Amino acid sequence: MNDEGGHDAAAVSIAGGEVLFPARYRCPHCGAAGFASQDAPRGVIEETTVVRRRVDAGSAGDVCLARVRTAGGVVVIARLDAALPVGTTVALFVDDRHRVLARAAA
């Protein structure tokens, strides 16, 4: 758990060694259900976009999204607090609403 109530660890399939983020119930590559925990992944922003209109969101405001490639090669779409430039290194975690979030790494 992190300080925001979410999870900040990746799962590593014990059988196949595949790194998964966010964690899954079963490894999509080998089907195994046994996982070990690994430090929260970091990645680099490859592309960004802004969602300006969302169905049933009312006037909730814009949402910044980024495609992030981790050092292990996993690519995730993550929500950003604010727009960040391509090439920025970010830390990834999953919040209590199961959203993948990215924040500029310290």
Rank of each mutant, 00 (worst) to 15 (best):
M1V: 05
M1K: 15
D3V: 04
D3Y: 06
E4R: 15
G5S: 04
G5H: 05
G6K: 05
G6F: 01
H7K: 10
D8N: 14
D8S: 03
A9Q: 15
A9P: 10
A10R: 14
A10V: 13
A10T: 05
A11R: 07
S13Y: 05
I14T: 10
A15K: 15
A15F: 08
G16V: 04
G16K: 09
G17Y: 03
G17A: 08
E18S: 14
E18A: 14
F21G: 04
F21R: 11
P22W: 13
P22N: 00
P22C: 00
P22V: 00
A23R: 14
R24D: 00
P28C: 03
H29A: 08
C30L: 09
G31T: 04
G34Y: 05
F35L: 05
F35C: 07
F35K: 06
F35W: 01
S37C: 06
Q38C: 07
A40Y: 10
P41Q: 01
R42Q: 09
R42Y: 10
G43D: 01
V44C: 09
V44I: 15
E46A: 11
E46Y: 07
E46N: 10
E47Y: 07
T48G: 09
T48V: 13
V50G: 11
V50C: 13
V51I: 12
R52G: 05
R52C: 00
R52Y: 02
R54D: 01
D56H: 13
D56Y: 12
A57M: 03
S59R: 15
S59N: 11
S59H: 11
A60C: 02
A60P: 03
A60F: 02
A60R: 14
G61Q: 08
V63Y: 08
C64G: 04
A66N: 10
A66K: 14
V68I: 15
V68E: 02
T70C: 12
G72V: 03
G72R: 09
V74I: 12
V74D: 06
V75F: 07
V75A: 11
V75T: 12
V75H: 07
V75Y: 01
V76A: 08
A78H: 06
A78Q: 00
R79D: 04
R79W: 01
L80R: 14
L80M: 11
D81I: 04
A82I: 01
A82P: 04
A83Q: 14
A83Y: 07
A83I: 12
V86N: 08
V86L: 06
T88R: 11
T89Y: 09
T89I: 13
T89N: 04
V90P: 14
A91W: 12
A91Y: 13
L92K: 06
F93C: 01
D95C: 11
D96N: 08
R97C: 03
H98G: 00
H98C: 07
R99L: 07
V100Q: 06
V100T: 03
L101H: 03
L101T: 00
A102L: 06
R103H: 05
R103V: 03
A104C: 09
A104Q: 15
A104Y: 10
A105L: 12
A106L: 10
